[in-house]
C-alpha cells in the first residue's frame, strides 16, 4: 500500500476513535467489564487503540526531512 493510502487509513482510524468515544450506549449501564465499570473499561480500551494507531503513524507517516541527516523530501 502506498504512503497516501496508509495515511488515509490512519486518519480514518483516529476519526473512528473520536466517534467511539461517545459511548452513549454505556452511559447508564451499571455493569462491570474486566473488573471495572464498563464505561471506564471502554475508554481505557480507546487509549490502548490510540497507542496502536500511533505506533503505525510513527512507522509509516512520520514527517520527513526535518532532521539534518534525512533526505529533504518535504513532509510526507
Amino acid at each position: 500500500m502506498k504512503g497516501r493510502g496508509i495515511r488515509f487509513l490512519l486518519v480514518a482510524a483516529m476519526a473512528a476513535l473520536f466517534i467511539l468515544r461517545h459511548d452513549d450506549w454505556l452511559a447508564s449501564r451499571d455493569i462491570r467489564v474486566l473488573g471495572l465499570p464498563a464505561s471506564l473499561t471502554w475508554h481505557v480500551g480507546l487509549c490502548v487503540a490510540a497507542t496502536l494507531i500511533m505506533v503505525l503513524a510513527v512507522a509509516f507517516a512520520w514527517p520527513r526531512g526535518l532532521d539534518d541527516d534525512e533526505p529533504q523530501g518535504g513532509d510526507s
Binding site: 483516529m14 476513535l17 473520536f18 468515544r21 459511548d23 465499570p37 464505561s39 471506564l40 475508554h43 481505557v44 480507546l46 487509549c47 490510540a50
Partner: peptide, 14 residues
C-alpha cells in the same frame, strides 16, 4: 463518578 475519565483522560489520550 467515572465519567471524568471519558471527559478528560480519553480525550487527552487521543
Amino acid at each position: 463518578g467515572v465519567g471524568v475519565f471519558a471527559l478528560m483522560a480519553s480525550s487527552s489520550a487521543l
